[in-house]
Nucleic acid binder design. Structure first.
Length: 166
DNA sequence: GCCAACGTTGGC
DNA sequence: GCCAACGTTGGC
């Protein structure tokens, strides 16, 4: 079997959050709506069942919030040919799909999200794609070392001092 | 809310 | 094929 690969999947939580995934039946959901060719190529050609991905929230509180497992590799993203979908793209048809998605299942929700600020402080992540200036790919490869470093760090107890004052 | 960096579109 | 204009992403 091919070695497991690691990825990072980015989502604006108001669009789709890890809590949304947690609430899904089977905690499984298609990762749809990706409309960038480079990201599409990863979804279509590279991501395999059994691969693991960091779930990243972009936006107000940018952070890695958990881990998902890919349970179904690339298949056509049918939201592209639904005129009512906000991701509708008439160039894509069932006969000749342009856009692809994978199915992911929730694997772990970090007790404390590992914020972008924290990620930037980790020397192991010096060359991580996510942290490179100008990179805004929503589907990116992550090296096994980077994945391991992030997961280990996120699981550390007392990652952040909780501010309970109110 | 701002704006830098990107990706895409379309005129030529 | 070039590139300006535009829309989007996403951190700050």
């Amino acid at each position: 079997m091919a070695p497991r690969q690691y990825w990072l999947l980015k989502s604006e939580p108001s669009e789709f959050s890890i809590d949304d995934l947690r609430a899904r039946p089977d905690q499984t959901e298609p990762w749809d709506g990706v409309r960038n060719y480079q990201a599409r190529n990863f979804l279509r050609d590279r991501i395999k069942a059994g691969d693991e991905a960091l779930f990243y929230h972009s936006g107000k509180e940018p952070a890695v919030v958990g881990i998902v497992t890919v349970v179904r590799p690339g298949y056509s993203d049918h939201t592209a040919w639904d005129p009512k979908s906000k991701h509708f793209d008439p160039r894509s048809t069932p006969e000749a799909p342009v856009w692809f998605m994978v199915d992911v299942r929730l694997n772990e929700v970090f007790e404390t999200p590992l914020t972008l600020t924290e990620l930037r402080k980790m020397p192991e992540l010096e060359s991580m794609m996510l942290l490179r200036k100008g990179v805004r790919l929503s589907v990116q490869p992550v090296s096994p070392e980077e994945f391991q470093a992030i997961v280990s760090r996120a699981r550390l107890p007392g990652l952040s001092i909780q501010d309970d004052s109110s």
